[in-house]
Design a protein around this nucleic acid. Sequence first.
DNA 1: GAGGTTACTGAATTTAATTCGTTCATCATA
DNA 2: TATGATGAACGAATTAAATTCAGTAACCTC
Lengths: 150, 150
Amino acid sequence: MDDVDKKILVRLQQDGRITNLELSRLIHLSPAATLERVRKLEQTGIIRGYMAKLDPDALQLGLLVFVQVTLDRTSPGIFDDFSKAIKSIPQISECHMVAGGFDYLIKARVRDMNAYRNFLGKTLTRLPGIRQTHTYTVMEEVKSNNELPL
Amino acid sequence: MDDVDKKILVRLQQDGRITNLELSRLIHLSPAATLERVRKLEQTGIIRGYMAKLDPDALQLGLLVFVQVTLDRTSPGIFDDFSKAIKSIPQISECHMVAGGFDYLIKARVRDMNAYRNFLGKTLTRLPGIRQTHTYTVMEEVKSNNELPL
DNA sequence: GAGGTTACTGAATTTAATTCGTTCATCATA
DNA sequence: TATGATGAACGAATTAAATTCAGTAACCTC
């Protein structure tokens, strides 16, 4: 991981579909050498993959919510059960176990408030071990690049 | 936006660098027609772009934190000032204005707890209009695909 | 049912990715 | 200081993919 690799990562983070040819020009290296570096970054797992960034509004997913979840600390398997259950719920794009006043922070996208009420009642509150939830609806996405600072 | 477009979006979300040829095979369409659809999705903004997904740990950004921010509601320009200031801070990957007990929810990545303490003191608490912050450090990323449910 | 629009196909062409033989620099070791 | 191994780079040749385009079918609209 030298400076050249870093330049590659910066570019690929900004444009995951840049051609190898253009990338090689930007970092002042031959196409063959550039490709070799990119492949190595992929194989070592530094580059985990590539994805298209889609517009949530265009796809009828205009409402973004964060949900704080507190679990029942009764049985020892509660956290595992909850984690497993989370993974198969498509609306949930992120779920983090956090230290602090609650247990999990969930990021989810739904069509509108109506859809969320339904999602909360039919899906979230029926998850194993849930004691309490707290919802914060997003009014404005001030920043949302999902890029790492390199 | 028909079912074929939807299939395209599903595939491109999973693998933003799939070749047009393979994509066309997966959706049972000719390469030319497939390309035309992808271009249209890009032009209409449904596809906003493409990005490489990088491994935070490999890049020395092992600590993920969420910060709840409450602003001083004194002057009317406070929210704009804050929003503008946020955008240039590389550690902040997301910032959302939320309805509820606080004003903004920030997602940030730093090297470790030491780096976070520094970030909080030197950067966050010096932003315009901040009254209070509340930090939640992530212990485990249970789910993190950043994909939209299609 | 004529005219216009849209989306598709398949072939031809352009462009990019990939492979490979070679060179150069670095570095540890005899 | 030679020697040989290693890693990274280049450039040319090859393979594969993207792109363009002419022609056709389906579908509206009037």
